[in-house]
Nucleic acid binder design. Structure first.
Length: 391
DNA sequence: CGGCTTTGACCGGCGC
DNA sequence: GCGCCGGTCAAAGCCG
């Protein structure tokens, strides 16, 4: 009896629910047996009648059944215990597996960073001494410019000579993704900025007029997408060589804002919408445009930012990547295009690739700009950038 | 009625 | 000088 209770107590610590039931049953058994035994003692001193003998027979049968039930309950407890052990073993195995996966991730990340550093070293070694820098990501095709020319500022260029810096990052868009993007078109600002587009941004600056031109190629089959700014159409013209009419828009967010934009479909691919922004906003951008600027910059990662952000010196608190890109695409002596805030020495004899690890990510710097290698994949997937500084 | 689009006219730059 | 072309203007019409 006492051993039974001890066992019950032990089970109580492990399996409360099962134990409650077992204990209730055991106590019921014990109580029943005791009463029956006492009755038997009393009756043993008295002459036993035939009826009593029959009653004893029934009692013996009942005791046998109860013993069988008790045995079954013990077996059930053992099964539960076994299951518990199996589950605990399974949990241990999963923990071990989890630990191994974590180690694998750590190793992969370490290899990745090592490769980034090696890549930067190789790039530095291969850096040509002439004033031409070539960077490319992804597939190359003849139709896509993938050349970066850096003219030496110190080489005594005449004013009418071309200053040119261009960088392109080629996109590889999965056809399925592209189809998905088309289906998603027109779902608003976020989806526009979130990468449904293949964008190529080109910049040109006229030193004489200090006018900024930013061209954005967006894959969009619907009407021109809302970029957050308010535009008023003031003209439309069919340009030579392209049957698609070119539409002219003027920024109407603030009176007198000189920013204009031209929208035209690409002849080669009618699904591509070429939007060219020109000028510098003389007002803070609306919330939507600012959000658009930041989201575009985020989606395009460090090498691309919204054309609106290019054109607006009031864009508050740009991300480090954004300011980096501004710097990258700006040039010393032509800082006026970004409201005069950005100054950068993109030219000069000291351009070289350097790399450093910052914040867990590795940054590759050409000396003119910084490329966050961590973002390489999404960047290559989403953005092609051609930034040119020319007269 | 105000704001926007449409559309033909106009203007200036550039090449021949 | 002339013609072409890209960009802009402004009147007319549309729409909410």
């Amino acid at each position: 009896m006492s051993s039974k209770r001890e066992r019950i107590m032990h089970i109580d610590l492990a399996l409360e629910t099962a134990d409650d039931e077992v204990r209730a049953l055991e106590e019921a058994e014990d109580g029943g047996d005791r009463e029956e035994e006492e009755e038997e003692k009393e009756e043993g001193e008295v002459a036993i009648s035939n009826e009593d003998k029959e009653a004893n027979k029934h009692q013996e049968e009942n005791q046998t059944e109860e013993k069988e039930q008790s045995y079954e309950k013990t077996t059930a407890e053992d099964v539960i215990k076994d299951e518990l052990c199996v589950l605990q073993a399974e949990m241990e195995r999963m923990k071990e597996e989890n630990r191994m996966l974590e180690e694998a991730i750590d190793r992969t990340m370490k290899d990745y960073y090592d490769l980034q550093i090696k890549f930067a070293d190789i790039q530095q070694e291969d850096q040509p001494k002439e004033h031409q820098v070539f960077l490319s990501l992804g597939r190359q095709s003849s139709g896509e410019i993938k050349q970066a020319k850096v003219a030496d500022r110190g080489s005594g260029l005449a004013d009418d000579e071309e200053l040119c810096l261009s960088l392109s990052l080629h996109t590889h868009v999965d056809p399925h993704q592209r189809d998905d993007a088309r289906e998603e078109k027109g779902k608003g600002l976020k989806s526009w900025a979130a990468g449904e587009l293949t964008t190529i941004t080109s910049q040109s600056i006229n030193p004489a007029t200090r006018k900024t031109r930013v061209s954005v190629r967006a894959r969009c089959q619907g009407p021109p997408m809302n970029d957050g700014c308010q535009w008023r159409k003031y003209g439309q013209k069919v340009a030579k060589g392209n049957p698609c009419p070119r539409a002219y828009y003027r920024c109407t967010v603030a009176p007198g804002c000189p920013v204009r934009k031209q929208v035209q479909r690409c002849l080669e691919d009618m699904s591509i919408l070429v939007t060219t922004y020109e000028g510098t906003h003389n007002h803070p951008l609306p919330v939507g445009a600012t959000a658009m600027a930041s989201t575009t910059a985020a989606s395009a990662n460090s090498l691309s930012s919204s054309p609106l952000s290019y054109l607006n010196p009031y864009l508050a608190n740009p991300s480090p990547q954004l300011s980096t890109m501004r710097s990258f695409t700006s040039s010393a002596g032509y800082s006026g295009i970004f409201g005069g805030r950005q100054q950068l020495d993109i030219l000069g004899p000291h351009h070289q690739a350097t790399s450093s690890a910052a914040g867990g990510g590795s940054w590759i710097s050409t000396g003119h700009g910084v490329w966050n290698g961590e973002d390489e994949k999404s960047l290559a997937e989403q953005v092609g950038v051609i930034a040119s500084t020319q007269r």
